[in-house]
């Protein structure tokens, strides 16, 4: 069994143990209502995290996702407030926001070779301002809390079959699709190759710049999609929506086993990761621990996960080196004989 599989099993085992612990403290945890909520929570972060996974597999990072969520939700609110655009068109337009942001990010990163982290942090800043600028305001210029009343739009945030939230369903569909795309298409293969060994990828004829721009666009689109679901569930949106969700997204992806160094990871892992994170958050709530622990837990989990991943990689490399030395000396022994 590969170490990836072992890692995943440990993660699942940990989740089961945590669930048992939480249930022991508060049996309400196991109620279908809570579990459905938990899944929805996981899905809201998870949808963004799916796109983020693609970026991280190319060894990049996208800090602008929170800003994309904020602007997208404001775009939706505006259209809902002032126009009667059909909902499918509205959703399409909102996804366009993310795609455009990704295009700009990817352009600066590939064409000008600017550091991904700072570029996307800058676009995040710009977007967060933009969200405030375009927010619906009252006559005094204060941001107005617009309640969404369009039923077709609210449909996204409600539950469907077996009480499962549509957000959860969308997350599942998106996750499965993204996983299949990553693992079973040439473009998906190119994404891994771009992150694992860009020089080799270019030698093989892969257009790494196009691939990079593509993943940032996808990341933006995922964030926009999440914005639609979140605003629909909340039946309103604030211009700050999504800002600060970056850490949750990064935590999900890192827990899922996608490495910052690129070339490693998949969507299954991220889906598990977002579930794990939702479980932790839900657990903190259900067990009555202070909610202030939450950021400590999330920050701590990221650090610990990354350290453990680095250590186990070092260990494997060490073992491989040992095995090589052994093989060499065996060969030498044979030569001598």
């Amino acid at each position: 069994m590969s170490h990836h599989a072992v890692r995943r099993l440990i993660l699942i085992g940990l989740m089961l143990a945590l669930s048992a612990l939480i249930t022991a403290i508060n049996p309400v945890f196991l109620s279908s209502g809570n579990l459905l909520k938990l899944l929805q929570e996981a899905a809201q972060t998870g949808i963004i995290a799916v796109g983020f996974t693609f970026v991280m597999i190319t060894a990049g990072i996208d800090m602008s996702i929170g800003g994309v969520v904020a602007v997208t939700s404001m775009v939706c609110i505006n259209f809902l407030h002032y126009t009667k655009v059909p909902i499918p068109v509205l959703v399409f337009l909102s996804l366009f926001v993310g795609a455009l942001t990704g295009l700009v990010n990817g352009y600066f990163i590939t064409k000008f070779k600017l550091p991904e982290f700072i570029v996307t942090l800058a676009t995040r800043s710009i977007l967060s301002g933009l969200a405030l600028v375009i927010a619906v305001k009252d006559s005094l210029g204060f941001v107005q809390n617009v309640y969404i009343q369009n039923d077709s739009y609210l449909w996204f945030g409600t539950s469907g079959l077996f009480g499962i939230y549509r957000t959860t369903m969308a997350f599942l569909i998106l996750g499965v699709g993204a996983q299949v795309f990553l693992k079973h298409t040439r473009t998906g293969t190119n994404i891994y190759a771009t992150g694992a060994n860009p020089t080799a990828a270019r030698l093989t004829g892969i257009d790494t710049e196009r691939t990079t721009i593509g993943v940032y666009m996808f990341s933006g689109v995922c964030a926009s999609l999440a914005a639609v679901f979140i605003s629909s569930r909340m039946m309103t949106a604030m211009p700050e929506l999504g800002l600060g969700s970056e850490m949750d997204v990064i935590a999900s992806v890192v827990i899922g086993g996608t490495a910052f160094s690129g070339g490693v990871g998949d969507v299954w892992g991220t889906m598990l990761g977002s579930l794990f994170l939702a479980l932790i958050k839900n657990g903190i709530l259900k067990t009555g621990i202070s909610p202030w622990i939450q950021p400590i837990a999330i920050g701590g989990i990221i650090v610990v996960t990354v350290i453990v991943d680095v250590w186990q990689k070092k260990l494997r490399e060490h073992l491989a080196a040992r095995a090589k030395i052994k093989r060499l000396s065996a060969e030498r022994g044979r030569d001598a004989a």
Partner: peptide, 21 residues
């Protein structure tokens, strides 16, 4: 040898939590 932005971004989060506590 973990990328600085990961380490310090995580630190930003847990320090905020500690500050809350």
């Amino acid at each position: 040898k973990i990328p600085a932005f990961v380490v310090t971004m995580a630190a930003k989060t847990y320090l905020y939590g500690i500050a809350l506590v």
